[in-house]
Write a protein that binds this DNA or RNA. Structure first.
Lengths: 335, 335
DNA sequence: CGGCGCCATTGAATCGTTTCACGTGGGGTC
DNA sequence: GACCCCACGTGAAACGATTCAATGGCGCCG
């Protein structure tokens, strides 16, 4: 008894396979009595639909994939959370893939997802290297929605936050508090979000004649934040404030500074990005640039289903949200 | 041009489909020149394998599903992280599903995973209601590994942490600090982990004649922690310490107490469970009962592949890890 | 020169569904 | 009583890949 198929059910209920299929997919088209007989057989045999066969016929699966840079980053899980309800409602299934900021992993996952003929794809690409493959997916009628990523030249829908502006807000906030030199922690700049945030920051610093130290050999997690602190303190004239490309880095930076006995915000201010829930709960509550995380996910899913239902006549939409500055204790001191 | 299939490739390269298949699956069995011709055709047409068809034939997919209670809980993402490398190496694909502690969602997801004929399943079940379905999966030769969940009566492999003992450790720690009455926050007790942790805690409290207030209408997240504080403070004689069933609740409790102006740990101590990374970084660094998160995931994946390779002769293994008490500032005061 | 074996390739069967063009029989209408 | 329509069911043809027995060609040995 490897697997029981519709044929077995049909035999057991003394009907044709076509009828079994109808019981499953259009119960109304089947007479009451027959339907019951088939359902009984299904239950008795413990029959379970074979989705591969179904998909093969349909040419498409019901899976919506979400490819994120880091599942362990609450920012992304919040995005996923935002998307789930919509996908559920539409009868889809969410598949979360973690590229781990690794171009190779990402490529492999995209390849597999393409082979699986997923219904659609929400993705925060690691960098631009996947553009070609994504275009191909789209050409094969697999809608691709870019998440947290400006439209740029790409032939896809997207939801994003104005990260350049977010960078400006953070920098401006720090300068207004009297800091004259700040550090930017987060890399590599091949990641568009990082680059945008840095761009906004740089713009403001240069405009104000403030110093800017850029630390880009820093991975986007807590460990990266601790390393950033080491690098910063090794500088000839360490800045008095750090702008971290995300909140995980900021938390790491906070830990690093605290371990070195440096007071936050008195001796060094910190501002993060994303405003994950843990930012507010940190040892020193973190100032941050808030992104509407769940809304990003929700909107992305919405765009996906819009694109699917609109079909070929669809024109891509690029939704941009504005970030919001949230000032907390980690930047609470005027110099 | 909906999709290009092997047939198209075969025609373009002027060979039979069988040969195309061979080029893809056993390149050595094909003559050099033919192989190149086929590969060229594949590249030119942009052919992508159809995994549904492949699976249909194979009777099985390459997907390893991980069903967790809450993707937004870092505990689970760390478990996923632990499992990923092994699955990758084995040529599998990780699919993360979020049951959201909802029995209905879980059931639906299991149904879908069964239809998809997943390669195997790592799951932290919401409660016992899924036992029957899980048994059926196992009977259909889909290995099921229970994660963070004692073996019990279940016919599956499992990895778990001794939660009863963890509960004891937490309670003992609090009593040793002089607390005479403690609150337990986390529910519902239909979730086995919660129940075990409470059991250990109760055992110690009763043994020592200490008071125990059980707050089980508390969901396992930050919001739940804030609510728990409200409930606790409404008691006639509020305890002087809270043991939270996980760290998210503990973080919420910390927020709740702080908002009420109650000092942690001086006026109320807190201890959590899991020791997620954010626990150490909290406003008041949280004491916690550490679980070997990544190792749970890694071991679970290992058990899965062992079971697959051992085949029918396999006997289930139940691996139990011991938790570890991590004392930090949130319980740093002797009464 | 005939026969043997090997290698590369072919073609057809198969996996389990869905779908659709066709029966078939019964009931209602005129 | 002729006719049509409906409601139910049927059976076979896809879907796209894998697999395996069969085939054909070729070189080599005797």
């Amino acid at each position: 008894m490897t697997t029981t198929s519709m044929k077995d059910v049909a035999r057991a209920a003394d009907v044709s396979v076509g009828t079994v299929s109808n019981v499953l997919n259009r119960p109304d088209a089947v007479a009451e009595e027959t339907r019951r007989r088939v359902q009984a057989a299904i239950a008795r045999l413990g029959y379970v639909r074979n989705d591969s066969a179904r998909q093969l016929r349909a040419g498409r699966s019901r899976n919506v994939a979400i490819v994120v840079l880091d599942v362990a980053n609450p920012f992304f899980t919040d995005v996923v959370r935002g998307a789930e309800p919509l996908v559920d409602t539409a009868g889809g299934v969410v598949t979360v893939c973690d590229s781990g900021e690794d171009v190779g992993r990402e490529a492999k996952q995209l390849e597999i997802l393409e082979e699986q003929r997923v219904l659609g794809l929400l993705i925060t690409p690691v960098d631009n290297s996947s553009a070609e493959r994504l275009a191909r997916l789209a050409a094969h009628e697999i809608p691709v929605i870019l998440v947290d990523r400006g439209a740029g030249l790409h032939p896809h829908c997207s939801v994003a936050v104005d990260d350049v502006h977010g960078g400006r807000m953070a920098a401006r906030h720090l300068l207004e508090l009297g800091h004259e030199s700040i550090a930017f922690a987060g890399g590599p700049t091949s990641i568009p979000q990082v680059d945008d945030r840095l761009t906004g920051c740089r713009e403001v610093c240069e405009g104000a004649g403030a110093g800017l130290e850029v630390l880009t050999s820093v991975s986007l997690n807590v460990t990266g934040g601790r390393e950033a602190v080491e690098q910063m303190l090794a500088l000839p004239r360490p800045p008095t404030a750090v702008f971290c490309a995300n909140d995980l880095i900021a938390l790491g930076a906070l830990q690093g500074l605290t371990m070195r006995g440096i007071k936050v915000p008195e001796e060094c201010a910190i501002i993060g990005y994303d405003d994950i829930d843990f930012a507010a709960a940190a040892a020193v509550p973190l100032s941050s640039v808030r992104q509407p995380r769940a809304q990003l996910g929700r909107t992305a899913a919405q765009l996906l289903f819009d694109e699917i239902s609109e079909g070929p006549g669809h024109t891509h939409r690029n939704v941009v949200f504005q970030p919001e500055l949230v000032a907390r204790a980690s930047t609470a001191v005027n110099l």
